[in-house]
């Protein structure tokens, strides 16, 4: 690959505030999204992801105004997810400063939405957000989860990412519900399983607790790495520390 490994801070936004919970529960306040986005833009982040974590459960659309004010602080790609159910939502988000959209639950209930978005704006605008957890009853051993990881779907996660790639997604964000919020490291086995099944770029998410956790996710096949609380609550130069660790493992980063 000629491109560098991307380091992506994630803003999980609930009622206008950035929050972070353990295993998607007990949300805890981490600040104002526009303020944090500004800080990360200046600290060398390669992209920023904005996830409206309550959008799906509370059945409300992502707050366009909040995306708008956050986007004004960001001159790197901004991916927005949460509550996106139609091409009209995508159009509104792009007009308000989003560059990509991330679809999770809505794609499970309406897979054609992936085709509609990809056919209009192209694969590079569409990220499939895969919330999955280990389930030995599934053929691949992983089940697709929805509603912020609270509800199982009975769908096999690997069959699902292959279908999503055929439907035109340009990237897959792998979020392991088992690893999320634990700060014990990424779910390397899940990343390897998805890497073996699809050829689009992968973003590893869930479980990062220290810089040394990142290289194994890249070795497992991720082209980008995403974390939330590590950056929100860590020292200001944490993005730099993560890039140091990735570089020390022999991968290229943007400086």
């Amino acid at each position: 690959m000629s491109t560098v490994i991307r380091v992506i801070p994630c803003l999980d936004v609930n009622n206008g505030r950035v929050v972070k919970g353990v295993n998607f529960e007990n949300l805890r306040d981490a600040g104002d999204p526009a303020e944090l986005a500004h800080r990360y833009n200046n600290a060398g982040a390669d992209e920023i992801t904005f996830l409206d974590v309550t959008a799906t459960t509370e059945q409300r659309d992502t707050t366009y105004e909040l995306v708008n004010s956050t986007a004004k602080e960001v001159f790197i790609p901004l991916t927005v997810g949460g509550g996106i159910r139609s091409v009209e939502h995508v159009d509104q988000l792009l007009r308000n400063g989003a560059d990509k959209v991330s679809i999770s639950s809505a794609a499970v209930s309406n897979p054609d939405l992936l085709n509609e978005i990809s056919n209009t704006w192209g694969a590079q605008v569409l990220v499939l957000s895969l919330d999955a957890q280990a389930n030995p009853a599934m053929p691949s051993g992983y089940e697709v989860m929805i509603k912020g990881g609270k509800e199982g779907t009975g769908m096999d996660a690997i069959a699902w990412v292959q279908e999503a790639e055929e439907r035109g997604v340009g990237e897959i964000l792998i979020n392991s519900i088992d690893a999320d919020g634990t700060r014990d490291g990424f779910d390397v086995d899940m990343i390897k399983a998805v890497r073996a099944a699809v050829s689009v770029p992968l973003i590893a998410s869930g479980g990062a607790g220290e810089p040394s956790h990142f290289p194994p996710a890249i070795e497992a096949g991720a082209q980008a790495v995403l974390a939330a609380s590590l950056f929100h609550y860590g020292p200001d130069d944490m993005i730099g520390q993560v890039k140091d660790a990735i570089e020390a493992a022999g991968f290229t980063v943007r400086r």
Partner: peptide
């Protein structure tokens, strides 16, 4: 190229 889209930071 082996991987498309070409997605990310390049020189």
């Amino acid at each position: 190229a082996a991987t498309v889209p070409h997605l990310g930071w390049n020189t």
